[in-house]
Design a binder for these strands. Sequence first.
DNA 1: CCCTGATTCTAGCATCGCTAGCGATTCTGT
DNA 2: ACAGAATCGCTAGCGATGCTAGAATCAGGG
Lengths: 191, 191
Amino acid sequence: MTIQTRRERERAERERLIVTAARELAEAEGWDAVTTRRLAAEIEYSQPVLYSHFKGKDAIMAAVAVQGCADLAAELRAARTAAGGIRESLAAVAQTYTSFAQRRPALYDAMFTHLVDLPFATEEAPAPLWDAFGELLLAVEPIAAEGDDPGLLTETFWACLHGLATLTRSGRLPEGAHESRLALLVGHFAG
Amino acid sequence: MTIQTRRERERAERERLIVTAARELAEAEGWDAVTTRRLAAEIEYSQPVLYSHFKGKDAIMAAVAVQGCADLAAELRAARTAAGGIRESLAAVAQTYTSFAQRRPALYDAMFTHLVDLPFATEEAPAPLWDAFGELLLAVEPIAAEGDDPGLLTETFWACLHGLATLTRSGRLPEGAHESRLALLVGHFAG
DNA sequence: CCCTGATTCTAGCATCGCTAGCGATTCTGT
DNA sequence: ACAGAATCGCTAGCGATGCTAGAATCAGGG
C-alpha cells in the first residue's frame, strides 16, 4: 500500500510541477511561449508525460486558471477586509481586481478570457472559482437595494470590472484614465 | 495610366474579396477554421497572395474587425434612433450591443477580444471605430451628470457591456439571466 | 520578336499539439 | 530468488499551422 501511495504522491507532485511551470512560463513570456515542448523541457520530462496528466494544453491552462482564482480570491479578501466602510470595500475590491488583471495578464487571460472548458456558473465549478466570486459577492451585497438579487448584482458588477480590465489592457481604452473610469463605475453602483 | 488604375482597381477588389471571405468563414465556422490555406482556396488564389495584401493573418483579422465596427455602428444607430426617450435609447443600445456580440461572436472577437495591433484610443484609429464609439456616446451623453466627462462615462459603460457580452458568451455567466443583468446595468447608469 | 519587369504559384521551412509503439523498469506470484 | 506481467516514460513521427524563398508565368515596350 505505501508503495502505491508513494507513487501517487510523486505523481501528484509532478502534476503540481507542471501547473506551476506553466503558470510561471506564461506569466514570464505569455501563453504563446507555453508550448508543450517548452513546458516538457521546463519540468525535465518528455512531452508525452503531459498528456498522462492532462487531456491537452487547454486542460493545463484550466488548471492554471483555477490556481489563479485562488490567488485572486486571496487578494480580494485582503483588500476587502482592510477597507473601512461599505463603499470603501467595494472600491478596494474593484481596484484590486483590475490591478490583478494588469499585473498578471497571462493568469487573468487563462481565468476569464481564454475559452476553456471549465464549468463556471454551475455547482461543479471548482471551489476557488466560487471563492473568488464569493469575495466579490461579500463586497457587493451591502450595496444591493432591497428587492435586488445580490448574486445577479454581483455578476453584473463583475462583468463591468472584467470589461474595464480587458479593454484597458488590450489598449482599447486609454490607460491613463483607468482610475477615473473605476471611480465612475463604483459611484454608479454604490452611489 | 488607365492600365495602372485598372490594376489597382482589380487589386483593391481582390483585397475586399479576402476580407469578405475571411469574415464569412469566421462567422460560419469560427476563427480557428480561418487558416491561410483555407482562405486562399476560398478566394481561388494561392496562399502567398494573402501576404502581398496583408502583413499576416492578424492584419486580415484587423481588417475584418474594422468592417465589423461599421456594422455595429449601423445597428447601434438604428436602435438608438428608433427608441423613444433617453433611458429607452440607452437600454436599446445596450440590448443591441450585447445582441450583436451574441449573434456574431467571431466578428465581435476580432473587434474587441483578439489582441490586434489596431490603433484604438488614438486619432489614427479607423473611422468605423470612432463611429461605433460615437453611437455609444450619443446614447450615454444625455444621462451624464453635470461635471461628468461624457467620453469617460461612455468608455465605462462600454466596458460594462463588453464584460457582460464576453462573460456571458464564454459560459462564465448563466445565459438565462442576461436580460436581468442588462436591466440592472442600465438602471444603475440611467437611474 | 525578344527582352524586361512585375506578379503569381510551387515547394518547403520551422513549429505547433498530439499519439503510436517500443524499451526499460518495477511489481507480482510461485 | 527468479520469471512473467504490467506499468511507465521515451523516441519518433503525423498532420496542420503561419509564413517565405525562388521558380515560373504573364504582361508591356523597344
